[in-house]
Nucleic acid binder design. Sequence first.
DNA 1: CGAGCGATTGAAAAGACTCAACCACCGTGG
DNA 2: CCACGGTGGTTGAGTCTTTTCAATCGCTCG
Lengths: 229, 229
Amino acid sequence: MLEKSHKYVSCEHCLVRENSLFKDFCKEEVAGLDEHKSCSFYKKNQPVFLEEGTPRGVFCLNSGKIKVFARGEEGKEQIIHVAKEGEVVGFRAMFSGEPYRVSATTLEDCNICFISKSEFLDLVDTNASLRNGILKELSTELADRATFITNMAQKSVRERLAFSLVFLDDIYKGEMINFSREDLANFVGTATETLIRLLKELKEDELIKTHARKIEILNREELIRMAGN
Amino acid sequence: MLEKSHKYVSCEHCLVRENSLFKDFCKEEVAGLDEHKSCSFYKKNQPVFLEEGTPRGVFCLNSGKIKVFARGEEGKEQIIHVAKEGEVVGFRAMFSGEPYRVSATTLEDCNICFISKSEFLDLVDTNASLRNGILKELSTELADRATFITNMAQKSVRERLAFSLVFLDDIYKGEMINFSREDLANFVGTATETLIRLLKELKEDELIKTHARKIEILNREELIRMAGN
DNA sequence: CGAGCGATTGAAAAGACTCAACCACCGTGG
DNA sequence: CCACGGTGGTTGAGTCTTTTCAATCGCTCG
């Protein structure tokens, strides 16, 4: 059961909009957004959309973090992306004309605004700056994924872990990384046990420190070196 | 040294245009394309564009095949994509505002048409159907890469090889797969020696047959089963 | 307080990689 | 026409990483 309490956030006063695709919207456009969007509260570990489902609109993340993942053969998750405040999630599926090919789930409590597909596509049609932002975003992400593939294919698990920790450190700017071991393993692309063993080594080398499940980065530079790019 | 002989192919009579991004162009638009494009002949193993280079336009593949690849830490190639006749290559970089993040090289002799960045972006601005085609293409490819990442992370080399062979079988429709062992290894994401050993097993199981470097698919169904998706 | 899930550890096995050598084919020049 | 050199393909042996399976621990929640 989806338990969503409504906690309205106006786009006009949205603090994270400046990081989003809608950053260049003028006053009228923002007002238009506000009129057509809805807001929902999602609890931790609640699905936002599911593979195979029909895309009905885009999700603008007002607060909280989300994981986007695909499932491999035996249902094992592979986390493809971690989205944070300000990000618009699920807009790729607006253009593909297909069901979702990935799923998204909240990693913590989230406030998420929803804009319907027709509304969003209207905006794309009429707003050149949004359109260009989307083209740029899609292109950049495509290149990022090429790097991701290369890392997966050529780096050791240890290197990928270092890489992932640095990546997540950016996402959790300021705070400690708050990821279950399983999620972290599914992001790095390894078995949970292997991940835990490697985390232990990093702890012994004083590159990180753990506080229960939370991970604190102690030596970012060395992790970057270890990641090897 | 780039040795290119010019062998002009008009877009109007281009047999592969119907598969390309430009398939919906009307007569006038095709004429416009023709006016602004140039044609070049590329020999086998000739670079089309290089990582770090500045994108100046897009390449429309009239005949031949191209590999698109990233380089890992020690310069090892990871092949991300194989493009065939009709495909437009390099258009992602038109939107990202960054240097190329991947390289492209011909796998065989190719005829390639070139459309400059400004011309291409003009077309995108004025032609909604092209624009939508691009948005769709980018989105679909993004999802494909999510699958690619998942395969890399979760499948064994044997499964990835089976997957790759089926994939290449589609690209080389009708013909045998004509890939160096090293390129194939760099596509599967493994060491050349491992690749050769696994090919040998597939030969013993009569799923494939090799003719010198060329690979003939004997049992596609079983390969699909083996690939596991 | 007990159930249950997530985190952790150990031991053994499997998968893949590296290194080193060898083979086979192909085009070149004598 | 043949020896030569070079590149790409193939094989073998040994090693290391990573996975798997099984078991234990520890904490949180009802």
